[in-house]
Design a protein around this nucleic acid. Sequence first.
DNA 1: ACATCATCCTGTATGC
DNA 2: TGCATACAGGATGATG
Length: 275
Amino acid sequence: MPEMPEVETVRRTLTPLISDKQIKYMVLWYPKIITGDAADFRQRVIGHRFEKVDRYGKFLELRLNDGLTIVSHLRMEGKYRLTTPEAPKDKHDHLEFIFTDGTALRYNDVRKFGRMQLVLTGTERATTGIGKLGPEPNSTEFTWSYFWQALQKKHKNIKTALLDQTLVCGLGNIYVDEVLWFSQIQPLSPANKIPVAAAKNLYKWINVIIARATQMRGTTVHTYLDASGHVGGYQLMLHVYGRAGEPCDRCSHILQKIKVEGRGTTFCENCQVKY
DNA sequence: ACATCATCCTGTATGC
DNA sequence: TGCATACAGGATGATG
């Protein structure tokens, strides 16, 4: 499932594949991928050129000329790949931009959870889910004092709080479990009960793990591939996610798996402290 | 204003 | 073996 390191890797690999390419036509096999009027989306993007790709949190912003932006969220399994219009359609190909140079960009999504929305560049925060996002890890807005004060307002457990994209954005189920393991904080600890020293540690690991995973081009646990078709590398460095029943890398206690508000959560009950 | 919950999907894994 | 059910999960809109 793409989280911020994976989406950033997609951004980097997608950019050279589509930059300066002009959309000649668009094929939409599964219209529900589009938020809003799908026919209007298609009519408005034809003739435009991709300029670059930006990202905020887990949202991609595909910039077209003349002030248009396609905001794209991959959710669980969305993928882009460059192909040709003649290539046979995969069962899960849902949309295709056909370029004037004879290539085509396809969007493939097994679970059909991903969404695309066409907006005027600069209005993303007012018109899409980007508007609700908190600061990104490693950004100038994500300061220690912001994080500490935000934690004091959260009465729910820290696992749920970190998945809530309004506190800090970009972390999903994998990285939240990893960050909590490094921080030695038990996932059910109430966010506002975490002592200042432990919270400071947590703040550090959020930044470090997201940076490390980005450097490793993300994590491939099920089906994630970047836009050039490559797997990530961070799955080799996972300590808890997907490792329930195995011994903890720090204390050898067998890792536990529980459900926290519907999300599978793996942790070490021995060395992660419940506050 | 806040928190919680169902919903969207389909492939894979498990149970009987 | 085959069928049914559970599970995976991010964001969103509905409900409390």
